[in-house]
Simulated scan of single mutants.
Amino acid sequence: MSDLHLVVFDVDGTLVDSQADILASMAAAFGALGLDVPLREAVLGIVGLSLDVAMARLAPDQPAGTHRQLEAAYKQAYMELRADKGSLLSSPLYPGAAEMLARLDAVPEILLGLATGKSRRGLDKLLEGHDMQRLFVTQQVADFHPSKPHPSMLKAALDETGVAAERAVMIGDTSFDMEMARAAGLPAIGVSWGYHPTGALDLADVIIDEFDALPSALQTIWGREI
């Protein structure tokens, strides 16, 4: 097990661009309750958090019961959009993502994982739509963990794979991903194409602008060629 390395990816804003459906679903949820729709920047700023935490941040003046109603309305709107469009259109992979996942998967010593604010059901639908079910040996979802940036997801991924923290890495687009990695003792790679500005990724060890730059970033962190 000592030779294994673990690459953990965030999902929304890192592997797939789901912002159109996130924004539309959030607008539908707030509209259904007669509340002012949050600004685009505010909505994208909470992507990656668990829904209960996200709604509390977006509607801080509303009671917990309203937050739960917003969660339910958001989930319903998102499911309807995904069912109508399909995952390939609803949450398309970023350029180079599929090729890089295949390249990493071909390296016997590298394991792939996910740590996402999505639900188990939502992640299953996404992976099924992109035919990526077999790629990720550890999949951590919001159903079973505190919201990012709590380190629970990454600690579970390390436990499941038996990989030491220094041989793992977290890759994400938000400050929550970087903070989670730090809290779990993992190095972190930030991506510039996601939903948080690169200025928010100050805890990243490396920031990349395209997937082709990932092998070099991993070599910088691990000291081995990928």
Results as ranks from 00 to 15, higher is better:
G199K: 00
I207S: 01
G113F: 02
Q133A: 13
L39N: 07
D84E: 14
H145I: 12
G117W: 02
G117T: 12
D209M: 09
E225W: 01
H196S: 06
R57G: 09
L111F: 00
D3F: 07
F176L: 15
G96L: 12
L104N: 03
Y94N: 02
A32F: 02
Q69L: 15
Y78F: 13
L81G: 10
L58Q: 02
P95Q: 06
L218W: 00
L127K: 11
A204E: 09
K85T: 14
A32M: 11
M153S: 01
D173F: 09
E99A: 06
V11N: 00
A56N: 03
I208Q: 00
Q19P: 12
P197D: 13
K118E: 14
T198Y: 04
A217R: 01
T138K: 02
G199A: 09
V107P: 05
L158T: 11
V169E: 04
P108F: 01
Y74V: 14
G162S: 13
A106L: 11
V141N: 06
F9Y: 10
L81S: 14
M180K: 14
W193S: 02
P197W: 06
P38F: 10
M180H: 10
D177Y: 01
E109T: 10
D177P: 01
R57T: 13
A168V: 09
A157M: 05
V11K: 00
D173K: 09
A59D: 06
D10N: 04
D52N: 14
S91E: 15
D177G: 04
A20R: 12
H130S: 05
A142C: 07
V107F: 02
T14K: 00
A29S: 12
P215M: 11
A73S: 10
A164I: 13
L114W: 03
E80G: 07
V107A: 08
T138S: 07
L93N: 03
S152P: 05
P92R: 03
H130N: 04
Q219M: 08
Y78V: 08
L39F: 04
E128Y: 04
S2Q: 15
V43Y: 02
A106Q: 10
I110R: 00
L214Q: 00
T138V: 14
F30D: 03
Q62K: 14
T220Q: 10
S2L: 13
A200Y: 07
D52G: 14
A73M: 07
L203R: 13
Q219T: 04
D143H: 03
D84A: 15
A42D: 15
F176H: 13
F176G: 06
S192L: 12
H5T: 15
T220D: 02
K125P: 01
M1A: 15
Q76L: 15
E179F: 08
R82G: 11
R57F: 11
L104C: 10
L51E: 06
V206E: 01
L81D: 12
S192D: 10
V169C: 05
L218P: 00
L214R: 00
A64L: 12
I221F: 00
V47N: 00
A115T: 06
H5M: 15
Q76E: 15
E109S: 11
L23G: 01
T116M: 08
A32D: 12
V163Q: 03
K118Q: 10
K148Q: 12
D17P: 02
E99D: 07
S175P: 12
L4I: 09
Q19E: 13
A184I: 09
L51K: 04
D202H: 12
M153G: 03
R121M: 14
P187C: 09
P149C: 11
P63L: 09
